[in-house]
């Protein structure tokens, strides 16, 4: 039984080349793809996340690790068995209507993806109707809304209302964020969760779905 030490180290360093070699070695040595993913890659990413929250890593280093993990996941893809838990969950994300800020949203997407979620990114200036439509289509576990302007925050409430009207509100959790957004506002508009930055967005998303 392998402890995936070298693989984990490569993911920690964001060394994609070595990580791919190590993942292949693990496959060759008989480890299952699911095991490599869960015990190797995701465990390593959790370490990375921890180091980041302690201020020991910078964002680009963390993103590089996430990218390394994604490359390895691609390598493992053909070897997954039916029934393997591959995705932590599906997230539909977008910046709400009237708002064109997307750097924060993109960062949140990348981090969630790095943590094992499957992302559908709808871009910016997304109307409540479009969110409803896409929710029907992709059936996400979490709908993540971003707003950077106080003037577009109400569009978050409108999106939640539209989901309600369409009978979709209880089919997914709604998580919101962006500089002017607060915990209090999240409660006020009936969102399920709020996070102030991309790191905590991952933790909140996991908490929403009851996973670690």
């Amino acid at each position: 039984m392998s402890d995936f030490k070298a693989l984990s180290e490569a993911v920690n360093k964001g060394d994609t080349k070595t990580a791919l070699v190590e993942a292949q070695k693990a496959l060759d040595a008989g480890s299952s793809a699911e095991e490599i993913l869960n015990k190797g890659l995701i465990t390593a990413m959790n370490e990375v996340g921890d180091k980041f929250s302690k201020g020991l890593l910078f964002v680009p280093q963390m993103l590089r690790s996430a990218k390394t993990m994604q490359e390895c996941t691609k390598l493992l893809q053909p070897f997954f068995q039916e029934g393997d838990v591959l995705s932590k969950g599906k997230v539909l994300i977008g910046t709400v209507k009237g708002d064109l800020h997307d750097i924060g949203k993109n960062l949140v997407s990348m981090m969630l993806e790095g943590a094992g979620f499957t992302i559908t990114d709808m871009g910016v200036d997304v109307s409540p109707e479009k969110f409803v439509e896409k929710t029907r289509e992709v059936k996400p576990d979490i709908i993540a809304l971003s707003a950077l302007l106080s003037t577009t925050m109400p569009a978050m409430a409108q999106t939640i209302e539209a989901l309600q009207k369409a009978g979709l509100r209880d089919k997914a959790k709604v998580m919101i964020g962006g500089a002017p957004v607060t915990e209090k506002y999240a409660q006020q508009i009936n969102a399920d969760s709020y996070a102030s930055d991309a790191g905590s967005a991952v933790n909140k998303a996991k908490a929403l779905l009851g996973i670690s």
């Binding site: 201020g55 910078f58 964002v59 680009p60 750097i103 924060g104 960062l107 930055d197 991309a198």
Partner: peptide, 11 residues
């Protein structure tokens, strides 16, 4: 333009 920086820890 406004050329500031994105802080690499807090973003």
């Amino acid at each position: 333009p406004n050329v500031s920086t994105l802080d690499m820890k807090s973003t």
